[in-house]
Structure formats: structure tokens, C-alpha cells
Design a protein around this nucleic acid. Structure first.
Lengths: 144, 144
DNA sequence: GGTGAAACGCCAACCAT
DNA sequence: ATGGTTGGCGTTTCACC
């Protein structure tokens, strides 16, 4: 229900999802039709969520990346929605450890970061935040 | 050198990069050809890095996500390469704050996480690590 | 920089093997 | 899963604006 060929197909598509199925099939030792059918099933099963583009956030004006540790206990129910409503928050995870939630935030600058922190603080249950600013990103890549 | 239409095109393509340029053009009030030309230039300029697929990591067997704070000072030169060589490391950032580097790591389980931590420890300049395990991910999304 | 149309190539759907 | 075939659609290019 998920062999090496499927993994190869996923790897190839992560690198370049614009290539033809004929090309894709040749790369993994399959015909175009067979490759297409496998990819169709991977999409159907939700292993492949969607086809998308990778954007240079800096080119879009988002120069500052920061991680925000959020303290506070009431993380049932609507808190996730309240965080999702803050558009600069790219990821939100519940974590084991010192804080309750870890957020990844991208903004155009420190000014906007300050504003985002203010809005995070207004979310129900939040009692405090600790912010870690990224100075340089070595890499952000797709696994496998 | 980057207007609202470009931003709309990027937003649409992030949601679904399989749609036709005709469709894309209609959505932003342009002809298919014009939409295609704009997207071509966005790729050329590197704003759009590549077209890729979004994969359900859990379906691939990667059930555990963790953030690793790495201590140690010698972060010039080859350290980034040494970290990139660890395939389970998805992101690596130099940060301002308590530790030097923040890593995002995905593994099949805690056993493999332990092994990854051991390999991180073997990288030159690393003097210690602190690991934060993700219990639940609210969301990981594309901005804009 | 955008439009509209024409030519080409690829994808998607079949079927027999 | 393959290979051949066919129909339809999207991409790409062109002259024109």
C-alpha cells in the first residue's frame, strides 16, 4: 500500500510537479499511463494533498521569520481558529515542554512582528509569549 | 515590479497549481496568455521557486515532528552542509536567543528521533541540544 | 503589456495483451 | 502493468493592438 516506486514518484514530483507523466514514468521505470494511475491514487488517498508553488517569501516582502512560544493553558476548542485568523502565522503546534504552543510567524519587518505579537496576546487563554527571531535560514526543504 | 495581480496569481497557484492558465487568467481578469506570461516572469525572477506537491507526512510514515535547539558557536562554513546531510532535518535556522540554531525534524517515531539527535550531536561545533516534541499540529499552511 | 486565434503537444480514456 | 490509439484540452507562439 505504498512501495518504493510510489516514494520515488513523490520525490520526483516534489522536485518538479510540472513534468509530464511520460517523463515521470521513464524516471521510475514505468509507462506514462502507469505512472499517471499511481499518482492519481496517491492524490485520492490524500498522500499527495495538493499541487502548489514554492514562493520566495523575501521576494514577497516577508523578510522577518520568527518563532513564538506561547504560554497559557486553555488550548481546547477555538484557540486554533483564533490563531489561524492571524494571517502572518504560518504554523501552529501544540508542544511538550516549557510553553504550550509554538508558532512560526513571517512578517515584513520588526514593526509588523510587534503588531502580530500584540494580536497573539489578545487570543483567549494566552498569558505570555517568548519570541525567537531568525537571523539566517540555512534551508527550508521538502523531506523525502 | 510586483502588483496586486501578481499577488493574486501567486495566491491562486498556491491553492492549486494544476489549473489552466485560461482559468487562472479569468480569475484575475486577464487572458490566458497574459496570465501565462506573468507567471513565467515570476518564475524567471525567482519569486516562484518551483512547482511542487504537498505531501501528508504522516501518510509517509513520519508521525513525529520535533524542534531541536542546538547549542554551540562555530556556525561558519560547513555546518549547514553537515546538517543538510541529515535527511530528517526539514529546516535549519540561525536564531537570536538562548541557542544558536533551531532545527525542525520529522521522524517515523521516537526511536528514530533519538538516532537523529545522536547524529546532530556529532556535527562539529555542537555542544548540546534541547528537544521540543510536537504533540499536535493545528496547521501548517502557505502564507498569502 | 494585453488580446485573440492557430498549431502543436500532451493528457486522459479506452482496449487488447 | 503495457502499448497503441483517439479525442479533447492546454500550452505556446504569433500578428496585432
Amino acid at each position: 500500500m505504498m512501495d518504493d516506486i510510489d516514494r520515488m514518484l513523490i520525490g520526483r514530483l516534489q522536485e518538479d510537479a510540472t513534468q509530464s507523466y511520460a517523463e515521470l514514468g521513464k524516471a521510475v521505470g514505468l509507462s506514462g499511463g502507469a505512472a499517471h494511475e499511481r499518482v492519481r491514487k496517491l492524490r485520492e488517498r490524500g498522500v499527495i494533498r495538493r499541487t502548489t508553488i514554492e514562493v520566495d517569501q523575501a521576494a514577497l516582502g516577508r523578510a522577518v521569520t520568527a518563532y513564538v512560544l506561547v504560554d497559557g493553558g486553555a488550548w481546547m476548542g477555538g484557540s486554533a481558529d483564533a490563531l489561524a485568523a492571524i494571517r502572518e502565522v504560518e504554523e501552529a503546534h501544540v508542544i511538550a515542554g516549557p510553553a504550550s504552543v509554538l508558532l512560526k510567524v513571517r512578517t515584513t519587518g520588526t514593526k509588523e512582528l510587534q503588531d502580530v505579537l500584540r494580536r497573539i496576546f489578545e487570543v483567549d487563554g494566552v498569558t505570555g509569549t517568548q519570541t525567537v527571531v531568525v537571523l539566517e535560514t540555512f534551508f527550508e526543504r521538502a523531506l523525502e
